[in-house]
Design a protein around this nucleic acid. Structure first.
Lengths: 269, 269
DNA sequence: TAGTGGTCTAGACCACCTC
DNA sequence: AGGTGGTCTAGACCACTAC
């Protein structure tokens, strides 16, 4: 059986929304106004089905909208829950004053300072340069690079992945880049000690929905985008590394401090 | 009728995906490997339904996944199409060397240089400060601010919205901020001429799925996140403005150049 | 065991686009 | 007119969680 939803009414040209959108809109309003605060459970599908006089599938379509918009999450057997996010701030402009993320220095201390428990896995590979990385390192696409890869967690929640590519000419000058295990003093410092100082970098920031692979690694649910950060570091001569960081978009924010910040720290008057 | 999909097979513990995911995965592979290049049309739902031996609704679930992941778009009567994006780069660290986005200077020239046609609408309002803005401007939440709002298009495609808030004390010193219409020399320059020079700024970048309102204003389809950029500008004394820019995530990328960039412009050797 | 969400089907009608 | 996607229903069975 099919019941037509009246789409053009006598309200002056406003066309009526489909029923599943009405469901989504109503619930979104109730989430916004605090009827269902972050962490609260929504009514079950069958309850909503009765309330909106809609089939279960229609209600599911509406809830599906909210899920893909990142407002609610669902789990089998448990129900729908209003999403709650606490974001972690990363200061990208202060991130590398001779302490380098790779071995967790800056990141781990940031996380610990925030009263959270950091944890990371780490591996080193020889890897052909992906096209975008090769372009930025000014090497041939597919040529040998050393990839130092890091998977970061905060309180055991996957937080971000970070892949740093070094061109092979640099690895000859600084062989420990290719060795597994941390470089205690930090890779940036280690490179400086071997005659290659990073004097500037170029950051590119973008966003998109995660690939299925990223969604798996970062345990991202539907409706959560990733924040992509690509940093290419330079010596005074040429590119020396390219770092690709993939953040869970719901948990992270990036900052840049540029110029004189005195006006930021002063007390309001 | 219901046909159970075998979920545990004899392949060594790999559990079988639900059918709609198989559909999505198969199509995603074919998109990735170029069977369906960007801009190409996918087979119709009924064709896919036959190919995968699934009901139309199941095929729709699979296609829905790809849509919410931003890989394909759909339009009534036309079919499904592989999404294609050309991204526009915005250099945030060079954005304000005394040319200010508000009147379109930097942005319009950037767009024109890229061979595209810029276009924007503009309005000025007195607006109570939103909480996050008030916090950054160090004023009371809800206190009066001047809001200069800009809606930008490129080749008539909605590109971004930008809202700049000025605290009321500043408007007393620089009254033209509250007047509608462009400030020819740019607001930053205008402010400098009136004794308030911006000496530094603080940028915050985040991402999330668009609100229904943003989706409407930016004509964002499902599966496209927004990129949020909040810039707070400071004099040597205190905050003087807060600019909130909302980008379509599929069309924009942000850049920062920090430190010496000589190594970036050099030729590869 | 009961309740929740997850998957799937079959079939209906509607709205949009192209010819 | 005929094809495409968009909305909606009714009902089935499965998987997970809680008690």
């Amino acid at each position: 059986m099919y019941q037509q939803v009246e789409r053009v009414s006598h309200d002056g040209g406003m066309s009526k929304q489909p029923k599943y959108r009405q469901v989504a809109d109503a619930l979104r309003r109730e989430i916004d106004n605090g009827t269902y605060p972050p962490g609260a459970r929504l009514p079950s599908e069958s309850e909503l089905s009765a309330r909106f006089d809609a089939s279960r599938n229609t209600v599911r379509s509406g809830l599906g909208l909210l899920v893909t918009q990142g407002l609610v999450t669902s789990s089998q057997g448990l129900g729908y829950e209003v999403a709650k996010h606490e974001v972690f701030e990363l200061n990208a402009s202060r991130f590398e004053d001779l302490s380098f993320p790779q071995n967790g220095d800056a990141y781990s201390t940031d996380v610990t300072n925030a009263g959270r428990r950091p944890h990371q896995t780490f591996r080193v590979e020889i890897h052909p340069a992906p096209d975008d990385v090769a372009e930025r390192l000014k090497v041939e696409p597919g040529s040998r690079t050393v990839l130092r890869f890091c998977h970061r967690f905060v309180d055991d929640v996957p937080w971000s992945t970070q892949a740093t590519y070094y061109p092979s000419w640099l690895v000859e000058e600084a062989p420990r880049l290719a060795e597994p295990g941390d470089i205690e003093q930090g890779t940036t410092r280690y490179l400086a000690e071997h005659g290659t100082e990073q004097v500037g970098y170029f950051d590119e920031i973008s966003t998109r929905m995660p690939t299925p692979d990223e969604a798996r690694r970062l345990e991202i649910g539907a409706g959560v985008p990733v924040l992509l950060w690509m940093r290419t570091g330079y010596s005074d001569q040429r590119p020396i590394r390219c770092t690709v960081t993939t953040f869970r978009g719901d948990l992270n924010r990036m900052n840049y401090e540029i110029g004189d910040q005195a006006g930021r720290e002063n007390e309001p008057q």
